[in-house]
Amino acid sequence: MTVFAPADRTVMDLGMNNGDDTAYYLAKGFEVVALEANPALAAAGRTRFAEEIAAGRLRLEEAAIWSSAGTVTFHVNEANDHWSSIEPSWAGREDTPTRAVEMPALTLEMLFARHGVPHYLKIDVEGVDAIVLDQLRDLPSKPAFVSVEDCRFGFHYIATLAEAGYVSFALVDQSQVPAMRDPDLAYVFPKGASGPWGDALLGPWLDRAAFEALYETTVRDRKGNRIAPRTHWFDVHARRA
Rank of each mutant, 00 (worst) to 15 (best):
T2A: 05
A159S: 15
V219C: 07
I131T: 13
A144L: 13
I65A: 09
G45S: 06
I123T: 07
F145Q: 11
L139D: 06
E212C: 08
D150M: 09
A238Q: 10
R230I: 05
H237I: 02
L106T: 00
E216L: 06
T71Q: 11
N18A: 14
L161D: 12
S175I: 09
V219S: 10
L60G: 07
F4A: 01
D207Q: 10
N18W: 14
E126Q: 15
A27I: 03
T217L: 03
L111T: 09
P196H: 03
A5S: 15
A63V: 06
Y166M: 00
K223F: 10
P204E: 09
P6L: 05
F145C: 06
A170P: 00
M110D: 15
I131H: 07
N77G: 06
R48V: 06
G165F: 03
I158D: 11
D8F: 05
R137N: 15
R9D: 15
A210S: 14
A113E: 14
V72H: 06
R59F: 01
G203S: 04
I131S: 11
G195E: 10
A170I: 00
P6E: 14
P97M: 06
A7D: 13
A241W: 07
V72W: 03
V125W: 04
Y166F: 07
G19R: 08
S68H: 13
V117M: 11
K122N: 11
R48P: 08
E149V: 05
A193T: 03
A44D: 13
G154M: 11
G70C: 04
R137Q: 13
P39H: 12
Y25C: 04
N38A: 07
E51L: 08
P229Q: 10
S89R: 15
V148D: 00
T231A: 15
N225Y: 13
Y157C: 01
G165H: 10
T160N: 03
V172K: 12
R59Y: 04
W66F: 15
T73Q: 13
E149Y: 00
V3P: 01
A54K: 02
Y120C: 09
A238F: 13
T22G: 09
G165K: 07
E212F: 01
P88L: 13
E36I: 10
A164E: 00
T73H: 12
R220V: 06
D124W: 03
Y166P: 00
V148I: 10
A213P: 03
G116R: 01
P143E: 04
F153S: 14
A238W: 10
A213Y: 08
A5R: 00
R9A: 14
A105F: 04
D124I: 04
H82C: 12
P204L: 10
F49N: 08
E126H: 12
R152L: 10
T10P: 02
V177P: 02
F4K: 00
Y24F: 14
V125F: 06
T2R: 11
N80S: 13
E51Q: 11
Y187I: 04
A34H: 11
T96K: 14
V172H: 12
A162M: 05
F153T: 12
A209P: 05
L185I: 03
L185W: 06
W66M: 07
H115N: 14
W205M: 02
H232Y: 09
L108S: 02
P190L: 03
S175N: 08
E163G: 12
E109H: 12
F49I: 02
A170F: 00
S85N: 13
E149Q: 07
